[in-house]
Simulated scan of single mutants.
Amino acid sequence: MSRIAYVNGQYVRHAEAAVHVEDRGYQFADGVYEVCEVWQGNIVDVPRHLDRLDRSLRELRIDWPMARAAVEFVLHQVVRRNRVRNGLVYIQVTRGVAKRDHFFPPEDVAPSIVVTSRSSNPEAAKALAEQGIAVVSFPENRWPRVDIKTVALLPNVLAKQNAKENGGKEAWYVDSDGFVTEGGSTNAWIVTRDGTVVTRPADSGILRGITRAAVLELIQSEGLTFEERPFSLSEAFEAKEAFVTAATSVVMPVTKVDGKIIGNGHPGTVATRLRELFHTATDLQAV
């Protein structure tokens, strides 16, 4: 079966899916996006993702391309039509198609919407989590509004490519004060030697991750000691364990940072436990 995409009101073959050359997402990165996990035939945390999409749209003053309920329907349709049982569904909304001009287009220009979905291999993800990943630090060089989930991801691309070229699977941004902000596409966490779980506050400087929110609930329900504060690279080097969170990787243990082994070099018990329990703290919508 051919992969199917949704583009501005139509379900089309993925190979033929396209937007206009003057779509503002293409020319200005003038748009936002969300990625939801698909797990065992369920879309994970749709309400939270659409709440964040709503906030991103409002921050950029972009209208919803259709009613929220209609967007939710399309998400389910695209997952169903692509027969995705485990994987992800991606939604992108831009300010629409208009002649290239830095000013906003006329109010009658409709936003553009694209939805795609693809399968992933849960066994491969499990094997990676059992091994743990390496991360490579990178100087923070993004605009201050990283709390908005925009499609302007060039700095993230460069940071993650640098990580790949230096033996890592993810990048960790480090600010001018030496503190880790977040990953190139994840939130960053450590577990200190005394067992305290630490992650940076989401009030500024990072994206308020949906997976992050579910993990925070798990930490509370499991009775773990938790601190929401910045942590430095040097503190990460001395940590008992580390991990990252995102819809595309759930909870992924980190065993090496900048070539330095974290803890005993194996995935930690806290990260492993949180990964095992993760979907008990999420909203699951059957496709």
Rank of each mutant, 00 (worst) to 15 (best):
F243A: 02
G183V: 00
I262S: 10
V71L: 13
R81K: 13
A242W: 07
T150S: 11
L60C: 03
F104A: 15
A18F: 08
E107K: 11
S137R: 12
F138S: 13
S112A: 04
E222F: 14
E227P: 06
R55C: 12
T269Y: 00
V89Y: 11
V254G: 11
G223C: 13
G25V: 07
T211L: 03
A271E: 04
F179H: 09
V74H: 11
D54I: 07
D51Y: 09
G223H: 05
E72P: 08
V93A: 05
I219P: 01
T282D: 00
G205I: 02
V254Y: 07
V93L: 13
R145M: 14
H266L: 12
R229N: 10
P47T: 00
K149S: 05
C36Q: 01
A188E: 01
L53C: 06
K260D: 03
H20V: 04
V7D: 12
P105E: 07
Y26D: 07
E241A: 08
I91S: 10
Y33I: 08
V136L: 10
A17S: 11
F278C: 08
R100F: 08
K126M: 06
H279Q: 03
L224T: 06
H14F: 14
E59D: 07
A125I: 04
T272N: 04
Y11D: 10
V197E: 00
F28I: 12
W143K: 04
R208T: 02
R68F: 13
S119N: 08
A15D: 12
V136Y: 12
W143N: 09
N166P: 08
V191I: 01
G259R: 07
W143L: 09
G183M: 01
V180R: 01
L53E: 02
L88G: 15
T248I: 13
E217Q: 12
S204R: 14
V135I: 14
